[in-house]
Design a binder for these strands. Sequence first.
DNA 1: TTGAAAGCGTTACCAG
DNA 2: CTGGTAACGCTTTCAA
Lengths: 337, 337
Amino acid sequence: MTAGKRYASSTDVARLAGVSQSAVSRTFTPGGSVSAETRRKVMAAADALGFRPSIIPQIMLTNRSGLVAVIVGGLRNAFYGAVLERFATRLRDAGHQVLLVPVESDYTLDTVLEELRSYRVDAIVSGLAVLSQEVADALSAFRIPIVSCNTSVTSDWVASVDSDNRGAGRAAADWLHRCGGTRFAFLAGPEESPASRDRLDGFRAGLAALGLEPPRVINGDYTYDSGQAAVSRLFADGPADAMFCANDLVALGAMDRIRNGLGLRIPEDVMVIGYDDIPSAAWESYRLSTFDQDPEGLVVQALDLVREMSEQGPARGRVRVVEARFIPRGSTRQPMA
Amino acid sequence: MTAGKRYASSTDVARLAGVSQSAVSRTFTPGGSVSAETRRKVMAAADALGFRPSIIPQIMLTNRSGLVAVIVGGLRNAFYGAVLERFATRLRDAGHQVLLVPVESDYTLDTVLEELRSYRVDAIVSGLAVLSQEVADALSAFRIPIVSCNTSVTSDWVASVDSDNRGAGRAAADWLHRCGGTRFAFLAGPEESPASRDRLDGFRAGLAALGLEPPRVINGDYTYDSGQAAVSRLFADGPADAMFCANDLVALGAMDRIRNGLGLRIPEDVMVIGYDDIPSAAWESYRLSTFDQDPEGLVVQALDLVREMSEQGPARGRVRVVEARFIPRGSTRQPMA
DNA sequence: TTGAAAGCGTTACCAG
DNA sequence: CTGGTAACGCTTTCAA
C-alpha cells in the first residue's frame, strides 16, 4: 500500500484560517451560507495551501463515483476513435469522468470488471465488437447499467444500441442491383461479430427479395489487410462485380487490391460499398460509397440508455436502433433509371 | 447530491457470515491471516450479497487514487488512437486506471484540471499538440506529475517526451536532396505547435547545411483537408518538387491534390515525406515515405517519467527524446549514388 | 452564520 | 487467528 503525498485538507485550511472545518466545507459548497468575512479568510488560506476539496469522501457518502467506464477493443479503426471522442466529450459535459478500458479478450474483461466494480463505476459503455449472450448475462449480475454498442445482446442490466445493420444490408443490395451489379459478394468481419452478421443477413435478404443469387462470403477481421486478402481469395474463385464490405477499412483494402492487384477499375468493373464513413472513405483516392453510422446518434442513444437504466433499474430488452444513412460516392456507378 | 444505490459493505458481509468486519477485510486482503473456516463463511456471504471491496476508502487512507489522466485533443488522427491505446494498456498493466480527458481548448483545460485535482489523480499525461510554457507553469503549481508529449515545454512538475523532430527534419532534407529534389516546401501544422516548428527547424537546418535555398512554408492544421489546401496555395505561387509535411494526414491530402488536382506524378514530379507512419501511410494508394514516431518508445518513456516524478518529486528540465526512424516508400524516388 | 459531531467503508494496529 | 478501534476527508445535521 504505497502512500502518496498528503493533500491539504479542509481541516488544514480551517486551522490556518482560524475557522471551523465546516466553514471551509460551506465555502466550497455552492449556495453554502458563509459571511463575506469568513469566505475571504477561507479562500486566502485555501490559496496559500493549494487546497481543492477531494471528491473521494463524497463518493463514499453518495455511492456515486461519477465514473463511467468505456470499454474499447482496438482503436486502430478510426471509427472507434470518433465514437470514443464523442462519448468522452458528452460524458464530461454531463458531469461524468471517463474511465478508458482497452480490452483484448474476454479473459481480460473478467479481470477488468472486478476493478471497475471496486471503483464503483456508475455505468459501463461497451464498444466491444464481439460480446456474447453469456458474457452479457454475467455482466448483468453486477447490477450496474451497461450499454453495449453494435452487438444486439441484452440482459436485465445490459441494454444495446445498434446501427440499423439489416436495413443497411438491404439498402446495399438494392443499390448495387440498381447500379447494374450481377455477381455479389460480402466481405465479412469476424464470424462472431453480430454487426457483421446482421449486415450480411440484410444483404442476403435484400438480394433474395430481388430474386437474385445469394452473395459469396469471405470472412476477415475488419482490417485493411483482411480486405486485400479477401479480394484475392474471392477472385481466385471467380469474379464479382458488386461487393458490400463489413466496414470501411475492409472496403479500402479491397479497393486497393482490386485496382492495383487485379488491374480492374472501380466502379466500372467492380463496385464497392463500405460501412462507417470513416474520414479516409471520403479521400479523393477512394471516394468510397458507404453508410454513415451516425456516431452522434449512437452516442446520444447510448447515454440516454445509461440515464434510463440508472433511474429505472433493470428491465429486459432495452434496444435502440440508429439509422444508417447511405452516402453514394465514386466507388459505385449511377443507378439506372 | 443524487445518491446512488447502496453497495453491500464488508459490515453487511460480516453480519451475514457471523464474523467481524475485520475478518472480512482480511479475507479479501492477499496474504491476510484467516482460518479456512472463516474464509469459507465470508466468501459464502460475500457471494450471496454480491460484495466487492470498494477502493474508495483506500484512496482516502493512502492518498493514491490509482487514476492517471490522459489528455487528448482530437482523436481524428489515427496516430493518437494508436498512442492512446498503448498508454491505456500499459497503464492498466501497471495497475492504474485511465481517465480519458478530451480537451478542445486551453479554456476547457482549466475547468478540467480542477476536476482532475478533486479526483486526486496520481499523474497526468498530456498528448496536446499545443501547450505553451505559461500553461505548463500553471500546471506545475498543482504539484502533480505531468508528462507532456511532443511539446518540449517543461517545468518543475512538467516533464516532456519528444520525438526527435529536428533530427527527422534534417534527415528529410538530406533524403530529398539525395533523391534529386531542388525546390523544397514544408507543409506545416498550426504555428503554435512546437512539434511542427521543430520539424521545420530541422528541415531548414538540413537544407542550409547542404547550401540549398530555404523551403517555402505553408501553414495548416494537421488535417487531410489542410494538406490539400496547402498544395493549392503552394503551387499557385510556383512549383515545388520536394515536400516535407508536418504529419501523415497532411501528406496524404497533399498527395491526392498533387495527383488529382494538379495532374502531377508522385514521386516522378513531386516527392512527399510525412510524419507518424499512421496505418494509411502504408496503404497501396499512397505508399508514403514517412517517419515512424515509435509510439511504443514514446509511451514507455512517458510512463518512466511518470514513475520517476512520483518517486523523486519536482525537478527542472526532464526531457526524453525518442528516435524517429525514416521509412522510405514509394512517395520518394531512389537516392542517387 | 457558526461549530461540533456523526457517518460513509476500508485498512492497519493492537490486544486478546 | 480474531475482534475492536482509530483514522482518512468530506457533507450533513443539529444546536447555539
